[in-house]
Amino acid sequence: MTTDTSTLVSTLPNNIPASFLKQITDDFSPERELGKGAFGIVYKGILENGELIAVKKLGENPPMALDKTFNNEVGNLMAVRHENIVKLVGFCHESQKKLVPHNGRYIIVDITEIFLCYEYLWKGSLDNYLFAESNRLDWDTRFKIVKGICRGLHFLHNEMDRPVVHMDLKPENILLDDNMVPKIADFGLSRLFGQEQTRMHTQNVVGSLGYMAPEYLYRGEISTQSDIYSLGLLIIQISTGEKNIPDAEDKCGKKFIEKVHENWADRHITSKYASFDANRLQQIEMCVEIGLQCVDHERKKRPSIVDILDKLDGKHSV
């Protein structure tokens, strides 16, 4: 069954009441949980007609912009249409009074709740297909997914009114449609947090373990090259089938990168594909090389998304 998001867009109001979202997610029941990310938890929402949407519940009182600015930004993001970007179909931004404990007594505080609603993709996230033998993807599908993710990121970095830095690229945030076309999820969260510039500093470092660029983690620098670092880790995992296991003491995935470098040096990776023809072997080698270039510790040495797409399309050698 496939959900028609164009129907959802026409039948749901843009600004959806929080009470409605609680109703369709069974009050955000753990049984409806689809996944967790750096910015919040995603739940399955079931509409009256049986159609599904994915509802992302952000943490209470996130450091968002003022209501009017937020509504304008969400409106802009809802207009985004790209084959490799998950569609945003609605949102909720509500404030309410809440009784909370404080220093041995209860006080009334203003709580802001923010929800983002996305199209529901039945295949789920990419991480379900990369490592398990039962539903392991063939190389042609993997290569198509790499190129699709890169096209989506190119759109975010170069084709919007101003660059959008994703800040949380990882297999769990790449969703797949019925034809295994990859779609980047949570594409607008950095902009909603007011971090839309091509390069800036932040004191509030938010990201997923094992995927954060060093300059972002240690200096709070945000740029499109932060995404390129995460993209490199993503491409390496898709290409090699090797899993980057998050480590609280290795937030940049350095151990994983070193392991890939070592395996790549002795051709351990390509030995797994000995039965492949020359063209596919060349594609695998190219993807691993691109991935390793993307995770260079020096931000300025990483390729741009334009360079990466040119290499994938055969316009430039690696």
Rank of each mutant, 00 (worst) to 15 (best):
Q293P: 01
Q197E: 15
E33L: 03
P17N: 10
K87Q: 00
S239F: 05
K87Y: 01
N204Q: 15
D26L: 01
I228C: 00
N71Q: 12
W122A: 08
M200H: 04
S190R: 07
R191M: 11
D4T: 00
V206N: 03
R302S: 02
H157D: 05
W139H: 11
H297D: 05
C150L: 13
V42F: 03
P17W: 11
P17G: 13
N15Q: 15
I85R: 13
H93S: 04
E258V: 09
H268D: 06
Q23H: 05
Y120W: 01
T112F: 03
A274T: 09
E83Q: 06
L312R: 12
L156C: 11
R151T: 10
H201Y: 14
W122S: 07
E258Y: 06
Q237C: 08
D127R: 03
K87M: 00
T5V: 03
H201M: 08
N49A: 03
G188K: 13
E51T: 07
I114D: 02
K259M: 11
P171H: 06
L176R: 15
G148K: 07
H154W: 07
N15D: 13
G45T: 09
K56V: 04
G241E: 03
K301V: 00
N128A: 05
I290T: 10
R142F: 12
P246F: 11
G210D: 13
C92D: 15
E31Q: 07
P101T: 14
R299M: 04
D178E: 15
I269M: 07
F187T: 14
S95T: 13
D178Y: 12
T11K: 12
F143L: 11
A185T: 14
A265M: 15
E31N: 07
I269E: 05
K44G: 09
H201Q: 15
R136N: 07
V318D: 08
C252M: 09
M1W: 14
K98A: 14
F28W: 02
F39Y: 12
T198G: 04
Y118E: 03
S6P: 03
F91V: 00
N179G: 14
L130W: 12
G291Y: 09
D177K: 14
D296W: 02
Q23C: 01
F276I: 03
K36E: 06
I108M: 06
E31F: 01
V295F: 07
G241W: 01
F131C: 09
Y216C: 07
C287K: 08
L137I: 07
T270M: 01
Y229K: 04
